[in-house]
């Protein structure tokens, strides 16, 4: 784990979330699905904010998260990380399904970029209006995601912890069906300690065992989620 004090270069809006562009040391740029923890140096927020990669551009990165309202361009923030295990898009994947069960697909954008780079076809399934999507990506309503199980060779999903009990329903995946390709899930839940404490507040049941989202995840094999 590395630590740095970084400057906020820009704050953007990707309704309803916000993005931040940071001058970030190269060794601290998170991989898709990994995260950083950040807190304002002179700010009043008490817990660190979880930031996921949106895109890396030159010597700066764009990240997204529920940013404190007090963050402004030019401000210095403590940044630690990168933490956790991210998405592992197979190099041979050519038909990639990306599924967002949240308000925005920003955290999945780096997977889309990676897939584009390896000339894979990408379909994004979402319940929300999709804007600024790369032209190569097909946007589809979430209700049609069950079709992806028959054509995709990789799937990346993001969901909030509270949605996990209904995950198969959302994804149109019957209990007796096991994906024949790699399907991964980014679990979104508060991770205040970033794996430093094993505090357990982010624990999730996987294959009958309690695992920590902050350390063992936040990306897991989809099929392992109970």
């Amino acid at each position: 784990m590395a630590f740095a004090i970084c400057e906020i270069l820009e704050i953007g809006l990707a309704d309803p979330e916000r993005t931040i562009r940071l001058a970030c040391p190269p060794g601290m740029i998170p991989a898709p699905g990994q995260y950083l923890l950040a807190a304002g140096l002179g700010a009043d927020e008490i817990l660190p904010t979880t930031l996921f990669l949106t895109r890396a551009e030159g010597d700066s990165v764009e990240l997204c998260g529920e940013l404190p309202t007090g963050w402004t361009p030019g401000m210095k923030i403590h940044v630690r990380g990168p933490f956790g295990i991210g998405f592992r898009l197979p190099a041979k994947a050519r038909r990639v399904a990306v599924v967002s069960l949240t308000e925005h697909y920003l955290r999945l954008l780096p997977v889309i970029q990676l897939a584009n780079r390896q000339n894979a076809g990408v379909a994004l399934f979402s319940t929300h209006l999709v804007v600024d999507l790369p032209a190569e990506v097909e946007a589809l309503p979430l209700e049609t995601v069950k079709e992806a199980w028959s054509w995709a060779d990789y799937m990346a999903v993001e969901a909030r912890f509270e949605q996990l009990t209904q995950l198969r329903e959302f994804l149109g995946l019957r209990v007796d069906i096991h994906p024949t390709f790699t399907a991964e899930l980014l679990v979104l839940t508060p991770m205040p300690c970033g794996g430093m404490a094993d505090c357990g507040v982010c624990s999730v049941n996987l294959n009958g065992r309690q695992r920590l989202v902050c350390k063992d995840g936040p990306v897991f094999e989809l099929i392992s989620v109970d």
Partner: peptide
Amino acid sequence: FVLWRGWQA
């Protein structure tokens, strides 16, 4: 918790 967020100035 300050160990998780870093010092406040």
